[in-house]
Nucleic acid binder design. Structure first.
Lengths: 271, 271
DNA sequence: GGAAACTAGTGGACTATACCAAATAAAATG
DNA sequence: CATTTTATTTGGTATAGTCCACTAGTTTCC
């Protein structure tokens, strides 16, 4: 397949728009038009270099730009691929990752990377209602959608409140386990989010290059007695999700009905 | 000032960690330690090249990495600067930008870039409760914190519901105007967020380079009659904000008190 | 004194290459 | 046929420059 820009188009606005943005535009258009379906592999960087008559550095600049916009992603030394659609995610809803992904016709999966019983340091005691030295559980999970790792979780749990937790099947909803086995009902989370870039260890786990853009989300969860029983950290691939929140300002319940959680108000490219 | 890495440290883990990450680490450490205060100008790229004995390309890679993490930012052809702290922002709360920024001891400002009365196209009618051809207002505002542009707003309003809106002082809270002049009380927004990168026009308005990482946030706002009266698009500098949400699951009001909206659970660098 | 013109300073874009490391495919081997 | 070895593909990191465009300060000129 020939990806190059027609020579007439080349001359048209020559030198007014940088090469890397033109190539970006070219692929962005193809992706939005649907000519390039999610999962499609893009040509290797060296091929782009030849076809567009640029250097690899410039080609990479275009690709990095598309990556930042969430249109494409890379797999370490394997190539560049068109991103699958974002998953709609409401961090304030009491809906598990699994349910939420299934509801959108995608296939979720979870892998427990590590479980650990450890002693709370000053850091942990700051976010969980425990003293320094108290036991806590640290669970690391990786969650995927359609086989693609999208989320790395670090779950910190007050160990005294749920003895034997690590013996339970941790690839399921933690909220369910807490409720069924320990009579703990989670509610009233504090949620914190910010866009950042991944550091080496997290990037490794998600199979992306260090420095890849990401969304960091943390959650402090209170139980029915108003004490913190869980502190979660979530590292998301930035192109994997779209946060959707429906706010209800404590009005009559009838008004909360029939709410469509999603509004696809923009194409992938801003205009 | 000499920024270079001590030669003993150079040899220690030589060749195991890429240069650009070491330089990143160096500056990240200085910033977190507080040696480099917000607003401080970093040395020019050419100086970094000489001091670290790398090429400018590599220096830029390090800087871009720090930018992606939100630790530093650039001003077009002026240089690189240490980012100010993120502002805590709750998109679900009925608190205006101005109030929220003031409450955190910072100085907000607003500039109206353009106001326009236009005819709804298919696109607009999709998000506002109007027909194609109905009049709508489009207001573009730029909001700054301590003199630094952080947010570009595109506000779409149903014009028939608020005649003469463009004649009012638009540098204030739109919610207030709606309420005071038109008896419209905004509630129940749908909020949508995703990390992306800025396209040329938005980047221009915010004074950043096109392709800079950003957070896109849109809001569909219903009035007391359950019809959509406003549709907002917000383009945020990604390093300017931290989303903080307190979720209350419709419990007794007493439980909603004394909630600290912020938890600084991570340093700028992930670990 | 104020406007216009020059001049560094500094990032933005790009060329042309080089070598390395991980992932994959192909070939050799038991 | 399955396994190990080897070669190829492909991105990751880095060098060494060049030219351009905008910013901001300084000087010149009317």
């Amino acid at each position: 397949m020939d990806w190059s820009i027609p020579s007439n188009e080349r001359r048209a606005w020559d030198r007014r728009v940088p090469y890397y943005l033109r190539i970006r535009d070219r692929f962005a258009a193809l992706i939005e038009k649907g000519s390039l379906l999610p999962g499609t592999k893009l040509p290797p960087e060296r091929e782009l270099r030849d076809q567009f008559q640029i250097t690899r550095v410039t080609a990479r600049q275009a690709l990095t730009q598309l990556e930042a916009e969430g249109l494409i992603f890379r797999e370490n030394r394997r190539g560049w691929f068109v991103s699958p659609p974002r998953i709609q995610y409401d961090p304030t809803a009491n809906v598990s990752f699994t349910e939420s992904v299934l509801a959108q016709g995608r296939t979720p999966s979870a892998t427990v990377l590590s479980t650990e019983r450890m002693i709370a340091s000053a850091r942990e005691s700051q976010f969980l209602d425990v003293e320094v030295g108290d036991p806590i559980f640290l669970i690391q999970r990786l969650r995927s959608i359609d086989g693609r790792a999208v989320l790395l979780e670090h779950l910190h749990v007050n160990a005294e409140r749920c003895p034997g937790l690590l013996g339970l099947p941790l690839d399921r909803s933690l909220t369910e386990l807490m409720s069924e086995h320990y009579g703990i009902s989670e509610y009233r989370p504090h949620i914190n989010m910010r866009p950042t870039a991944l550091a080496e260890p997290q990037a490794q786990a998600l199979g992306v290059s260090p420095g890849a853009p990401s969304l960091y989300l943390s959650r402090i969860i209170y139980d029915q007695f108003d004490s913190i029983i869980e502190f979660d950290q979530e590292f998301w691939r930035h192109d994997a999700l779209e946060i959707c929140i429906n706010v209800h300002h404590h009005l009559s319940p009838v008004q909360a009905e029939g709410v469509n959680n999603s509004h696809d108000d923009m194409p992938e490219t801003l205009r």
